[in-house]
């Protein structure tokens, strides 16, 4: 039990260290770049004198670099990311609504892709070597290879040709809703294509991971042992094979979250979905560095925290870690 505690403590310590490195890296990246974009921008005429004064006070732009660094860490941890050049309001007011919109798309897509991947990976592993396996593995590899943005565009072309579904944004522009249900319905319609795109590109890797992990497990002695007790194939799958095969899935899902986020960024840009990905894209074009700087920190920290959650979940499901 003590070792389990120290295992968790180690993971949390690593997460804190990672966040610290991310914040540090972010600070120096935007300050040591040619021309120090942050400093130049915060003195730009786009902001009111009052805003510049606030920034100078909070971020100490006239102080030595190391003092700016400590202020930056303090501000980052309190979600004070300065003022957006583009929107001229505090960055957090731009960033956090976008983060919510991203999650509205990302979470269902990931869950859907994992569930589909588990189902088809299981079929492929069980029928390994058959035409079914070949088809499922082949389509998974193909979907894994499709460039996210291009798949999105293909779906847009289809939708335009059939004029069936909206291809841009979260809601119909200028629409007012008489009640919540209509708004929700409109959101669902807008979500179909981006959700399909993201789910499809994520689905392939989960199928292959599930299949290969299950094939390894099905070769284990405890599967034959269960069979020797008189268990049916479906019982062995449910009680012995799947729990053991799903375990490595959890850590792989967490590790691949970085890739997942990459896919989400591209999907958001293609479908004009107002999430963090689109915000980053717009901020690059508008040279809105404070937003970029903050977006990077927030996305990276979210992934680090998701990994801590995965570690805890894993250790909860695997007695080898829980009781050692």
């Amino acid at each position: 039990m003590n070792e389990y505690r120290s295992y968790l403590a180690k993971r949390v310590a690593f997460a804190i260290l990672s966040i610290f490195i991310i914040v540090t890296f972010d600070f120096f990246l935007f300050r040591l770049m040619p021309g120090n974009p942050i400093e130049i921008l915060y003195r730009s005429p786009a902001l009111t004198p009052a805003q510049v004064a606030t920034l100078n006070r909070e971020f100490g732009l006239n102080l030595p670099l190391y003092q700016q660094y400590f202020l930056f860490i303090k501000n980052s941890l309190t979600a004070n990311y300065g003022i957006s050049i583009n929107y001229r309001i505090p960055v957090s007011q731009v960033l956090f609504p976008a983060l919510v919109n991203s999650l509205v798309l990302l979470v269902p897509a990931t869950v859907l892709a994992i569930l589909l991947g588990i189902v088809t990976g299981r079929i492929a592993a069980w029928r390994r070597g058959t035409a079914t396996d070949g088809f499922l593995t082949g389509t998974s590899m193909a979907l894994y290879s499709i460039p996210t943005f291009w798949l999105g565009e293909m779906l847009i072309l289809l939708a335009i040709a059939s004029s069936s579904l909206p291809v841009s944004g979260m809601y119909t522009l200028g629409q007012t809703y008489s009640n919540f249900i209509f708004q929700f319905f409109d959101l669902m319609r807008h979500m179909v294509l981006p959700l399909a795109t993201l789910t499809l590109v994520l689905y392939g890797q989960f199928t292959i991971i599930m299949r290969n992990s299950l094939i390894d497990v099905l070769d284990e002695d405890y599967i034959s042992f269960a069979r020797s007790k008189g268990a049916t194939d479906s019982y062995i799958m449910r009680r012995h094979a799947m729990p053991n095969a799903e375990l490595p899935m959890i850590s792989l899902i967490a590790v691949n979250l970085g890739l997942t986020v990459g896919g989400a960024v591209l999907t958001e840009v293609v479908f004009n979905w107002p999430g963090v990905g689109l915000l980053i894209y717009d901020s690059i074009n508008a040279r809105d560095y404070p937003v970029l700087q903050a977006a990077f920190i927030v996305v990276a920290i979210a992934i680090v925290l998701a990994n801590v959650v995965a570690d805890v979940l894993y250790s909860f499901l695997d007695p080898r870690i829980r009781y050692s």
Partner: peptide, 16 residues
């Protein structure tokens, strides 16, 4: 492995 590489790359490539 954990950091969101594409987001990272977008920002660095934009700055460089």
């Amino acid at each position: 492995i954990v950091i969101p590489a594409l987001v990272f790359m977008i920002i660095i490539a934009a700055l460089l």
